[in-house]
């Protein structure tokens, strides 16, 4: 019975680990001004593993990414690809599934090795509703200097989609 319990616990943990991922990323891109710029970025992003759909809009200055299930892609890799194309990755609107934990009075979500730290400008009613465990969130990821990407992001929670 004890053994079965351990196996069940392990299965739950491993499942929740697999499910932690980026679902959707709307990445703002500065400096992209021409059709070949958009074409190059779209082709570059499409070569990354874990993407289901990529669309780049010149007029919006955004790359719209829908990620495949069980992907291992990180926001850092996406922003690095933007930089490799000669542009600057700015803010992003991201849908994530991950483990919400409280660390030194700050909420954070861990996804594929990246840490999304909930910032103080998240509406208080949303913060009050948070509980540790698996969660699906729509978040606004704040811009970081392109040269200082380290997999840690400040986020403002826009909506709790599932907890």
């Amino acid at each position: 019975m004890k053994r079965l319990g351990i196996i069940a616990l392990l299965t739950i943990f491993s499942l929740s680990g697999v499910m932690a991922q980026l679902i959707k990323v709307d990445q703002e891109v500065f400096g992209m001004d021409c059709a070949p710029c958009a074409y190059g970025l779209e082709r570059g992003l499409k070569k990354m593993d874990g993407l289901e759909k990529v669309q780049v809009s010149l007029n919006d200055g955004k790359a719209y990414l829908k990620l495949a299930s069980d992907n291992k892609l990180t926001l850092q890799k996406i922003q690095e690809e933007v930089r490799n194309n000669g542009f600057s990755a700015k803010n992003a609107e991201v849908t994530i599934v991950g483990q919400l934990v409280k660390n030194e009075n700050a909420w954070q979500v861990n996804v594929n090795g990246e840490t999304f730290i909930v910032s103080s400008d998240t509406p208080s009613e949303i913060v009050k509703s948070l509980n540790t465990g698996k969660i699906k969130l729509k978040v606004f990821v704040k811009d970081k200097e392109d040269n200082h990407l380290n997999g840690t992001w400040d986020i403002r929670i826009v909506e709790v989609l599932k907890s």
Partner: peptide, 23 residues
């Protein structure tokens, strides 16, 4: 090669855009 981006400037004059990394 990765697909490149820029290189879309004037015909005669000096310009600034460079290709993407690996472009």
């Amino acid at each position: 090669s990765k697909v490149s981006a820029q290189g879309h400037g004037p015909l005669y004059g000096l310009q600034t855009p460079t290709l993407a990394k690996g472009g």
